[in-house]
Computed example of a mutant assay.
Amino acid sequence: MPIASYTITAQNDMYVVIIDNNDHERPSVTNSAAAVISDLNVKFGGLGTRRVFYRDTIRRYDELKHQGGVFTGFAVCSAAQQEFLQNQ
């Protein structure tokens, strides 16, 4: 299965922020979340405890939850998190 096209916009030892490039020939980050987490895990040599936030195709931020670089689900970002992430 193809992976979403995404861009890393911020990264540090606590979190990674990505945006969905909205490539209509590929699945969205939402629809390929497990593959995106796996890809990030490889790129960073392990995500460790970093949180992964993403901006979806409707420009809303949410979190891709993972454990040890394996996707475990989604979490909704609060209004304060939305505001913070928009400035990253």
Rank of each mutant, 00 (worst) to 15 (best):
D39H: 08
D13Y: 12
D56R: 10
A75K: 08
H24A: 07
S32C: 05
S32Q: 08
G68Q: 06
S78G: 12
A4Q: 06
N22I: 09
C77E: 05
Y61E: 01
L64K: 11
Q88K: 14
I8C: 03
N22E: 12
G48F: 08
Q86K: 13
P2C: 04
A34Y: 14
Q88I: 09
V42M: 03
F44A: 00
I58M: 04
Q86V: 12
T7K: 07
V17G: 00
F53E: 02
V42I: 13
V16Q: 01
D13V: 13
C77I: 13
F53N: 00
S28W: 06
S78R: 07
A79V: 15
A79I: 15
V52E: 04
V76Y: 14
M14R: 10
N31K: 11
V42Y: 09
A79P: 10
F53G: 00
L85Q: 03
Q11R: 14
V70T: 12
F84N: 01
Q86A: 15
A33E: 12
I58H: 12
Q82G: 02
K43I: 12
N41T: 06
E83A: 09
N22C: 13
E83G: 06
A34I: 11
E83D: 12
A4F: 09
A34D: 12
F74P: 00
G45E: 14
L40A: 02
V36H: 01
V52W: 06
M1V: 15
S5C: 05
D13C: 05
T7L: 01
Q86L: 12
Q81H: 07
R51H: 15
H66Y: 01
V70K: 14
Y15R: 11
V29Q: 00
I8A: 02
F84S: 12
V70M: 05
I58S: 12
R55L: 09
I3G: 00
F84Q: 10
L47D: 08
R60F: 13
I58C: 06
A33V: 14
F53H: 05
G68I: 09
D56T: 05
V29A: 00
A80V: 08
E25Q: 10
Y61F: 12
Y54P: 04
N87R: 11
Y54F: 15
I18D: 01
R51P: 07
N12Y: 12
Q81F: 05
T72H: 08
I18K: 02
Q82A: 04
N12T: 11
I58V: 11
V17M: 03
I8D: 00
A4V: 11
R26I: 09
A33N: 04
H66F: 04
F71W: 10
Q11C: 13
D39E: 09
I37L: 10
A33Y: 07
S28P: 04
T49S: 08
N22V: 15
G68N: 09
I37M: 05
K65D: 14
R55Q: 05
Y15P: 03
G73V: 14
I18H: 00
N12S: 11
E25R: 10
F74L: 02
D39K: 13
Y54M: 07
I8G: 00
C77V: 15
G48M: 02
E25V: 09
H24T: 15
L64G: 08
S5E: 00
T72K: 06
T30F: 08
D20M: 03
